[in-house]
Design a protein around this nucleic acid. Sequence first.
DNA 1: ATAGTAGTTGAAAGGTTGTTCAACCAATCA
DNA 2: TGATTGGTTGAACAACCTTTCAACTACTAT
Lengths: 120, 120
Amino acid sequence: MSEQEKPLFCDCDVIHEDVVNRVREKMYEKEQYIDLAALFKIFADGTRVQLLHALEQGEMCVCDLAVLIGATKSAVSHQLKTLRMSNLVKFRKEAQTVFYSLADSHVEDILNKGFEHIWE
Amino acid sequence: MSEQEKPLFCDCDVIHEDVVNRVREKMYEKEQYIDLAALFKIFADGTRVQLLHALEQGEMCVCDLAVLIGATKSAVSHQLKTLRMSNLVKFRKEAQTVFYSLADSHVEDILNKGFEHIWE
DNA sequence: ATAGTAGTTGAAAGGTTGTTCAACCAATCA
DNA sequence: TGATTGGTTGAACAACCTTTCAACTACTAT
């Protein structure tokens, strides 16, 4: 099923058909936008961006991170799980301690673009 | 009240005090992370990123956008309000028609960084 | 004037999300 | 072996978010 077959139902008429047709060719599949939104959703929480920014400075264990940002181990662990499942952080185990670090530099890039914007 | 006075209560001990102290100096105020997360929250919805990506191609009115992405005028208008209030889009009125466009190039930058990541 | 259209808005409904709490696992140490 | 510690997990609750629906404004045209 192609993108062209998506339901065009809408409660109004096209006003500028030429513009809409030109733009439609440049658009991606709806799924792409949902995936993109899912990525930004990970960055859409204060605790998580704080964790990511902390991990930019180097690897840290759960307790260190919890003390650093003033949250419980449990809350941090839950958020790290989210970050882990999105492949934004990686980790290594050493005895009972788990050290987390950023998965790749894309993460920093996105954080920095965001900071750039809010600082104008 | 300075950032240093934030409650350090936590349900665990600092394990690597030197690391934590070094990282703490690099951290921003908690409010900065909340603001950053608030920005990413705007990008954290499929409909909104679709609207933003559509507006990268040029200005469009509400009906055009609604038909283009297959949503109701109302849903689009609600999301455009969110984008407007975050200063991510601007608009101009012409008779009863309202034309929306991107507020600045930061928006495209952030979208592109996101696409880069999901496409690896 | 009256009808129709572009757009906005508030409330309601359904879904998602973040933290807390308690229980749990696994590794260390006494 | 038994106690402690670092870390994870599931359930529950509250808060938030997105769409829909219906009502509404404002402009245009007949």
